[in-house]
Nucleic acid binder design. Sequence first.
DNA 1: TTTGGTGTTTCGAG
DNA 2: CCTCGAAACACCAA
Length: 277
Amino acid sequence: MPELPEVQTVVNDLIASGLIGCKMTRVEVRYPRIIAEPAPAQFRRRVTGKTITAIDRRGKYIIIDLSGPIHLLVHLRMTGHLYLAETTSQRTAHDHVILHLDDGRKLRYHDPRKFGRFFLVDRSETILAKLGPEPLSKHFTAKALTLMLSKRKRMLKPLLLDQTFIAGLGNIYTDEALWKANLHPCRNSATLNGPEIKQLHRAIRYVLRWGIKNNGTSLGGGETGFNSITGRRGRNRDNLKVFRQVDLPCPRCQTPIHRLAVGQRSTFVCEKCQPLP
DNA sequence: TTTGGTGTTTCGAG
DNA sequence: CCTCGAAACACCAA
């Protein structure tokens, strides 16, 4: 579910909710597999009593810095949600981890498919080092992308989804960026010329920035779609040009949008705007 | 009722 | 190095 803009929205909202400075008075782990490391008992022991000092994002990871210092990394995978609940609110189905705060609120981790993971580590780099560059960082320039692409010969879409190549893109924003750059998802990454790389670089940053501006993309019904911690839905669905827009006209040329499978993933394209040479 | 699809990642086989 | 398929799991729409 959540890609870079959705994760950034969660981080922004956690900060806006005044979570920094809160102390964790109790930790409940209802479904132990969510805790990737360390063992759940040790996780509870090490988190209890710690204060949240900072909240940040890297790729699709939420980084919660705790006093110690120690770092809690949360990856939401497909259906993970972090919710901030008031004192009196009752736990619902699929609430797997509950962090009780010293002001009475609870930070709950909700995940029907149970794919998401918590990592508690001394150094966040042990988890994050494998990630590719942050696409919105000033270091991610067209020149940097040119260099990155020069080392690879793969289909564009699977390459952009590869978090070790570039961090934060998922199925939605990859399709949107490729459409904006007029590039077919099956193009071989090694065949892009200078102007095409520039277009791709611009498109990636553009679609991610818009996603963040709109507080993420919420698809499907209320429960299943992306919700930030207060239950607010993102408005970026109105911005999607191709993703899940089958048979609707391409906003540029009116050609109906097609769905294809690229590397086992649903992929949406305008065949006219994104020709395959 | 059953089936196929889902916004993610990781792993192993070829 | 790359590609593919499967697995982790629950839900929803057709």
